[in-house]
Write a protein that binds this DNA or RNA. Structure first.
Length: 363
DNA sequence: AAGACGGGGCG
DNA sequence: CGCCCAGTCTT
């Protein structure tokens, strides 16, 4: 049941609290749809501090949407390297090319039009529509779920279709006729600075007098999620194959899996934990294009645990020298020393490569 | 509706 | 170690 009195208290208190300068961001004070779109894609499931340097890199490399549309796929993946959720980078490029190819270089200026761009879902379409075009649409993101579930002491799960619809109605009502651009920025700043997941700043919150979760002492029980996180465990063995000319081999991940389109050292994935190099060379998954009698084992890295949100990956790097490595290998790329900078790698590999002492005996 | 998809920061 | 972050797409 709508509670317009409560809604108007919420929006006026929120806007009274809001000060755009408290959390400055380069895309906040502008209305350029390209930059707003770029920032919103980067910030999906990503903290502002983490995304900010990437935003700067992209704007510098591609000042306008046409520059991005004309970029090489590999250059864009390389610029995105390390940020995660790489489908965002692939869709970023697709969308830029769509804007240039099908919309004459001009971004759609409606919620529905924006939704047709790949990578632009309900949240991002609302954000761009309000920030860039002043459309009267409210954003629904993690902050909004948390703030509204608390303010109304509402235990409706946020991770179901019904829940999303419910909270969209709540936030639409709360925004009312307030300036959408201000309201949306205010509610997200408020979630980041005051109504935080932990250690919420209830002692100086402008909404305390009517916050139901505070009154009921349920602040840290909200919001409610229905689904539990499931985690998969995987075992990755990367083969670092170096020849006497200082060359090594990489391959691109093309399957529908983690790190799609990124590069890696030739990978053997096994179901068994704790496999040593000898057992690996005898394993059924050993690639047929490497004859083990041509290799000389050099060393093996310590086992690394690469912890992701949905996967725990145990990684070992196995170093071999390969005299007479072929000049060409179908489906693989032969790299010489400094060429790593042209290819995007997962963090577990860039971090490994960054260790100078490892690289020394590699080449 | 349920899974899949990264990486980092913080308690 | 578990949770969360300016979510979206596929199945």
């Amino acid at each position: 049941m709508p509670d317009s009195d409560r809604d108007s208290f919420f929006s006026s208190a929120l806007l009274g609290w809001y000060d755009p300068d408290r959390r400055p961001m380069p895309w906040k004070a502008i209305s350029d749809p390209y930059r707003i779109w770029l920032s919103e894609i980067i910030l999906q499931q990503t903290r502002v501090e983490q995304g900010l340097p990437y935003f700067e890199r992209f704007v510098t490399a591609y000042p306008e949407v046409g520059d991005l549309a004309a970029a090489e796929d590999e250059a864009v993946m390389k610029l995105w390297e390390g940020l995660g959720y790489y489908s965002r980078a692939r869709n970023l490029l697709k969308a830029a090319r769509m804007v240039v190819g099908s919309h004459d270089g001009v971004f759609p200026d409606t919620y529905a039009g924006l939704r047709t761009l790949p990578g632009v879902g309900p949240y991002t379409a609302a954000a761009i529509a309000s920030f860039a075009f002043g459309r009267q649409v409210a954003v629904l993101d993690g902050n909004v779920f948390r703030i509204l579930s608390r303010f109304y002491n509402d235990s409706t799960p946020i991770d179901t279709g019904k829940g999303r619809k419910h909270y969209q109605e709540l936030v639409d009502g709360a925004m009312g006729t307030a300036d959408a651009r201000l309201f949306n920025q205010a509610i997200m700043d408020f979630g980041a600075l005051v109504c935080t997941p932990k250690q919420a700043k209830c002692s100086h919150c402008p909404l305390t007098e009517r916050c139901k979760a505070l009154a009921e002492n349920t602040v840290y029980d909200l919001p409610v999620k229905e689904k539990k996180l499931k985690r998969r465990t995987r075992y990755f063995h990367f083969l670092v194959l170096a020849d006497e000319k200082g060359q090594t081999i990489i391959e691109q991940r093309l399957e529908k899996d983690i790190w799609q389109n990124l590069f890696q050292f030739p990978l053997i994935e096994t179901d068994e934990p704790g496999l040593g190099t000898n057992a690996l060379a005898l394993h059924a998954n050993w690639p047929d294009w490497i004859a083990t009698n041509d290799l000389r084992f050099v060393k093996r890295s310590a086992p690394l645990k690469h912890q992701l949100t949905h996967q725990t990956i145990h990684v070992v790097f196995h170093h071999f020298s390969w005299k007479g490595m072929p000049e060409k290998i179908s489906g693989k790329i032969i790299l010489n020393n400094k060429m790593f900078e042209n290819y995007a790698f997962p963090r577990v590999i860039t971090r490994y490569l960054a260790d100078k002492s490892l690289l020394l005996d590699l080449f």
